[in-house]
Design a binder for these strands. Structure first.
Lengths: 314, 314
DNA sequence: AACTTTGATAGATAAAATCTATAATGAATT
DNA sequence: AATTCATTATAGATTTTATCTATCAAAGTT
């Protein structure tokens, strides 16, 4: 028995097809066929029922699968044990990122990450905060990137702050001051992201909209992306909030319609989250450093002192 | 990385010596050295500090060890997955047996078990009931053989009854009836095993000694083996209790001094215990069958009906 | 019946684990 | 300091294992 054979079994179960499984494992179908057969003989069990179409995993096979997954997950942890020493990351990292971070952050650090660490396999999913917490707890992802602090976060999670990012106002008439005050925002129509995208409750806190619910029925509108919100603001007037990294990617025209708040600048705190015991501890540290190195130069916020920042949490 | 390399690491950690580790793995020292080195290079960590004497496992090494143990334990479970189909057992089974069962039972079934299943590796420890429960709970053994029922046994344990074994009286004057009654035992001096050997509390229940504590101060004596108890009985008079399988191994002279109780015959219930989820379920079934096949013909008790038996528990 | 899809098999090749023999290292002893 | 002993590392040969290419066999489709 070896680790590859277990991977091959998983691949066949996933694809229900020897040929496709072989391709996904980067071996020939002949090799895969032989290796599966060898494992079946060694364990004296039938793992797959090849007579059914598509291929069926037997009951014994299902039992084996679960244990094989456990073994391979533990093997991954071994790969991540030593990678601080050399600095090179390897093995597999499963990362969940909330949408409002994913759209601007991933494009920033992914290129250098993948280039600097060719042996690293990244599996990224864009999911909500709740989903990240759930998937961390169920070992479906290794790390999450989301906005913190999170209310009543269990001790079981380990949090590492990555950066603070200013929340900027889009759609404001250019003010002489160059900075927007909370007062400028009051009583304006504000477009926000749909609930579930953690962003919304943050923005509501910020703009003190909660107190005057009556005036803001239009907050019921649900949008999934900043792009939509910006378009709405353009066409129908009103404001929306965008984080600094997103601002950096805007067109010159749109940048001109975007302003920082005045000090203390409202910022959101973006953190890397894992569940204890952290099986890929060193990778977490390394990943955090890499992201910080790349993101910090992109953020004017990074130059400000703590007392000039106002962290807005959920 | 492969499973062998992980085993080699465990062996070196255990022996603190490359040569001895190699021997215990049935490979040469050169191979072991090369394989350890290869794994260290693959993971980019130093597992052992060879400059210290005896060899020291590094901090990274300790982290790796724990995961390696997990992986190899899971691998063992895979080996045990299919062995009902062929009937042949293989892989590793760690078995804890209480002393009063071990001394007579092991010699009975071990020979045929090992002969019929050459690929099976048995690791047996003779430990107390409490220790069996603890080691099962901490995954230090796979199965326990002990006397049941056990008071307040958690739902987490799975129990399979193996056989019922008569408790016989040694040191009694031969009675015409051929059977001893509880009355014959009353007021006699009784030698019992030390506490911790589950046997004692059972016997005390049986003989109703608890009610007349004053008369039996000599029960304070602690012995570890039936052999000692029989000798005591011979030299100082008084009775002791022996289970039927132990009786079978006695000399003719001693057999003549041993008698069954009259019906309902007090018996102890011997069971195979495992913790849920049972990772080696099929092996458990197979092992139970094998023991029953071998033991049943040895026991007169097996011929009796249930209503003629009186199960004495702790 | 001809064709296609899919998994199995045979034989060759490449990669690896392991062996024997010997060197290098470091501690213990003279 | 030199010598011996114990222990791990290394070199090169050998065996074992994994993988590849090419082809076959069986089942499903046209």
């Amino acid at each position: 028995m070896n680790f590859q054979q277990l991977e091959y079994v998983l691949a066949v179960h996933r694809t229900k097809h020897f040929g496709k499984a072989a391709e996904s494992c980067n071996i020939t179908q002949a090799t895969l066929s032989a290796m599966i057969k060898k494992l079946e003989e060694e364990l004296s069990i039938q793992i797959f029922d090849r007579s059914r179409h598509p291929i069926q995993t037997t009951d014994d096979g299902i039992l084996l699968l679960k244990k094989a997954e456990d073994i391979l997950a533990k093997q991954q942890e071994l790969f991540h044990l030593g990678q601080m020493d050399t600095g090179e990351m390897m093995g597999e990292i499963r990362l969940g990122v909330i949408p409002t971070v994913a759209n601007s952050l991933l494009a920033l650090f992914l290129p250098s990450l993948l280039e600097q660490h060719p042996k690293l396999k990244l599996i990224i999913s864009e999911i909500t905060t709740d989903e990240i917490l759930y998937q961390l707890a169920h070992n479906q992802i290794d790390f999450g990137i989301l906005s913190t602090p999170i209310e009543e976060l269990s001790e079981a999670y380990e949090e590492q702050i990555l950066y603070y990012e200013a929340m900027m106002v889009y759609g404001i008439e250019s003010s002489d001051k160059g900075f927007v005050s909370s007062k400028d925002v009051e009583n304006k129509k504000v477009w926000l992201l749909e609930e579930g995208h953690c962003f919304r409750s943050q923005s509501m806190t910020l703009c003190k909209i909660r107190e005057k619910k009556e005036q803001t029925e239009n907050l019921q509108f649900k949008s999934n992306s900043f792009e939509t919100l910006l378009n709405l603001s353009d066409q129908m007037g009103g404001l929306t909030l965008v984080p600094e990294l997103y601002y950096n990617n805007l067109s010159a025209k749109r940048k001109s319609k975007t302003q920082f708040f005045q000090k203390p600048i409202p910022v959101r705190e973006i953190s890397l989250l894992a569940i204890k015991p952290i099986s890929k501890k060193r990778s977490m540290q390394k990943l955090a450093e890499l992201i910080q190195e790349i993101v910090t130069p992109q953020l004017k916020t990074a130059a400000f002192k703590n007392r000039d920042l106002n962290i807005i949490g959920i």
